[in-house]
């Protein structure tokens, strides 16, 4: 379907990736396929979701798309160019936010330097670095006094905002969010998702998650990945019309919170 879009931004074609399987004595016995012939494409400016359970290969897929790992066969093309070439040609136009915010930042760096690293990757033109960092921190709603703090002095939500600011800093056209909100408290997840929506602009997002509610909230369209295979591509606006049995299964096993509460909650200064 979307493979035949007129001007796809990202095209993934017949991607295969195997990992060696080892037996108890550590010998390689077989190659286990992690990604099996994965093909899809993303339009420019789209929020594409990637939904799957742990072990479904979604993190491997994200690493292949980012060029951190080479697939065994198949292509990842950005604007028609291979990912490594495209990344080299357009420095800083590719960015990523990981789930584990603790290992995402160098524990010895000040917040200012962490964000500045992303800024310099994009060439760092225009304003002075100090101004740029201050503007980025404002954009992700971080108080500017945190610029001189060290990562361990920040809460999880704040640290993930730092990672988002760093990812934005190089002015990218494509960001991968690899379970970027899954490790946060639910109340903070909502705030961060709102933030992601607000800052999106004309960027293309690949939003990886295991939670269908989050995918439905943020994405235009999402792909279901199961055991390394694409099980379905679902348009969020027409989710109920989808005939995929796996989607049905996921929907039925979703823990939905319901409440008759209708008031708008006052913005609560988060304790975290």
């Amino acid at each position: 379907m979307s493979l035949h879009d007129a001007d796809p931004f990202l095209v993934v074609r017949h991607l295969w990736k195997h990992y060696p399987e080892r037996n108890r004595s550590g010998w390689r016995t077989a190659m286990r396929p992690i990604l099996k012939d994965v093909s899809f494409s993303a339009r420019r400016g789209e929020i594409l979701g990637l939904l799957g359970e742990s072990g479904s290969g979604k993190s491997t897929l994200s690493r292949c798309i980012l060029g951190l790992e080479a697939p065994d066969s198949g292509d990842v093309l950005f604007e028609g160019q291979t990912v490594r070439y495209w990344r080299m040609r357009h420095r800083g136009s590719c960015s990523v936010v990981f789930q584990d915010y603790v290992t995402s930042v160098n524990p010895g760096f000040h917040i200012r330097d962490i964000i500045a690293e992303g800024y310099r990757a994009g060439g760092g033109e225009g304003r002075s670095e100090r101004e740029a960092v201050a503007a980025l921190m404002e954009r992700v709603q971080l108080p500017s006094r945190l610029a001189e703090s060290l990562p361990h002095q920040l809460s999880g939500g704040q640290l993930q905002r730092v990672c988002i600011a760093r990812a934005l800093a190089s002015n990218p056209s494509f960001i991968v969010f690899d379970e970027a909100v899954s490790a946060l408290d639910v109340s903070i997840q909502t705030q961060v998702l709102d933030l992601l929506r607000n800052i999106k602009g004309d960027m293309t997002y690949l939003f990886i998650t295991h939670d269908i509610q989050m995918a439905a909230l943020l994405c235009d369209r999402f792909l279901l990945l199961r055991n390394g295979e694409l099980a379905a591509a679902v348009d969020c606006a027409a989710m109920s019309a989808s005939s995929s049995p796996y989607l049905r299964e996921l929907v039925n096993s979703t823990v939905v919170f319901s409440s008759e509460f209708t008031g708008t909650p006052t913005a609560w200064e988060s304790s975290a």
Partner: peptide, 19 residues
């Protein structure tokens, strides 16, 4: 109210998508 509200907001897209 804040906890309930933010949790409801997270579910909203899912409900809307399912019609």
């Amino acid at each position: 109210q804040y906890l309930v509200g933010t949790r409801l907001a997270l579910t909203r897209g899912f409900r809307r998508a399912l019609g």
